[in-house]
Amino acid sequence: MNEYKILFTGTMGAGKTTAIGSVSEAAPIVTDVANTDLSLGKERTTVGLDFGLLTLASGDRIRLFGTPGQQRFDFLWKILAKSAIGLIILVDNSRSDPLADLVVYLDGFAEDLSVLPCAIGIGRLDTHPVPTLEDYIDILANRNQLVPIMSVDVRRREDVVLLIDTLLAQLEANTFGA
């Protein structure tokens, strides 16, 4: 039996806990506490790692980790990423500068992204259509990074499943081809 990790990251409120809850077989173990920073408009915030679990028929387990809600990139996450099979970056398009939010994570994980499968989910595009997905794709192209990116509502299981499937396809691409 083996254990694998998938890491969910993104700003506070981007939907990490929700995404993990959408696919985890057990309710995610949440380490949220009351948020004392009223400017964040969120009652609870994650202080430790969230995690959910997927147990495969083989007995293998996948732990779904959500990084804690901090404003700054934490180098501890890079250590986690080193042993992960994939990274999912969630972005909340209702924030003031969500493109800059994404860049924080792209910069933080830059060294890992050349080998670590990664997928980006942009949430709340329906209510906050700007910036558009094309703006995000431009940012990636300008950085010479090619990462699958899609509009998601992580409250919907199929959206989270598609993000995970995209990580799997990257593992498969590394198996085959020239």
Binding site: L146, P148, D165, T166, Q170, E172, F176, G177, A178
Partner: peptide
């Protein structure tokens, strides 16, 4: 470059194919 959403739609097979060749040149 990652395709605009209109090209792939929400078709998981197309997303999977695009993902494969985003990573590696394939026949």
């Amino acid at each position: 470059r990652w395709p605009p959403p209109a090209l792939l739609g929400s078709n998981p097979v197309r997303v999977r194919m695009a993902t494969l060749i985003s990573r590696r040149a394939l026949r």
